[in-house]
């Protein structure tokens, strides 16, 4: 299966600041990919590079085997929904569909019409008068009716209330089930992604911390607790992601492909949220140390 996004040493610099650095990824097709990280981690930059709206400073990126934004054929294959689901406030709903039909060669007018009807949106109403949830649904309808192979969504549910959030994800999952659609969506909340994503990329401090199928990530990360000991004494192939110690006990979150054989450890599984948080705090810890070194 071909990769939907393939990058090698990809980087983007704004003046002296690297918004994304040394990013090497290969995301297979047919997944719903969650791109998680705190605000300012570089998520929007990576998505901007994938759509071709930004040009890389370093490295390479291919989307669906082509150069992002290279000509009408490539543009037609990728749908993009920017942060806060922008629509034209002064244009009625019906005109948004007309616009979609004129701008997109693969436009599915029937799908768009049926969807607007099911949402109970008045075609004559101006988009600016819609609720936040309705605006997001209109924007998603436009992106799906374009019939892309890859749909990229930047923080699609961040500004929505819980009900609108659920409805948005329901429609997104329905579309994934109906069409052979790969999806990449970013969020700073893991809880949003837990149900919908089967592939995860954790991005912190402009660098990819971990990436892979959710199932594999959950199967290879374990929480170990036992008598206090030096993490350096662990077997090869076991990587410590986070560690905390009391005077008698050590608790470690480790990544290992093999089983944990040492009977001194009590081994338990890790939820997606804990896993992401461990990588985030690991990266944040590194950031703090660097900061201190600069001050000295």
């Amino acid at each position: 299966m071909t990769a939907v996004i393939e990058t090698g040493g990809l980087g983007k610099r704004y003046r002296r600041l690297w918004a994304l650095a040394d990013c090497t990824l290969s995301v297979p097709a047919g997944h719903v990919v969650g791109l998680v990280g705190p605000n300012g981690a570089g998520k929007t930059t990576l998505l901007g590079l994938a759509t071709g709206m930004l040009a890389p400073t370093a490295g390479t990126i291919e989307v669906l085997g082509g150069r992002p934004g290279a000509g009408p054929a490539q543009l037609a294959r990728v749908g993009y929904l920017a942060q806060d689901a922008p629509v034209y406030a002064g244009l009625p709903v019906a005109d948004h569909l007309k616009l979609g039909a004129h701008l997109n060669p693969g436009w599915d007018a029937e799908l768009a019409r049926a969807r607007i009807k099911r949402l109970d949106l008045d075609p004559g109403q101006k988009a600016g008068a819609l609720s936040g949830g309705q605006r997001a649904q209109l924007a998603l309808t436009l992106a799906v009716a374009k019939r892309p192979e890859l749909l990229i969504l930047d923080e699609p549910v961040a500004s929505l209330d819980p009900l609108a959030r659920r409805e948005f994800l329901q429609y997104l999952m329905e579309s994934v089930g109906e069409q052979s659609l790969s999806v990449v969506l970013s969020s700073h909340l893991v809880a949003d992604l837990e149900r919908v994503c089967d592939y995860l990329i954790v991005l912190v401090g402009s660098r990819v911390q971990v990436a892979g199928p959710v199932e594999e990530l959950l199967a290879t990360h374990h929480l170990l607790s036992g008598p206090r000991r030096d993490p350096g004494s662990l077997p090869d192939g076991m990587r410590v992601i986070s560690a905390s110690h009391t005077d008698v006990q050590s608790t470690l979150l480790v990544r290992t492909s093999g089983p944990v054989l040492d009977p001194a450890w009590m081994v338990s599984g890790v939820g997606l949220e804990d896993l992401v948080l461990a990588y985030m705090s690991q990266a944040a810890g590194r950031g703090r140390r660097n900061h201190l070194e600069v001050q000295r």
Partner: peptide, 16 residues
């Protein structure tokens, strides 16, 4: 149907 479960529960169709 897979599609209906995915839409109803807002979960990934691959899970179903």
């Amino acid at each position: 149907k897979v599609k209906d479960v995915a839409a109803g529960l807002a979960i990934n169709p691959n899970t179903v």
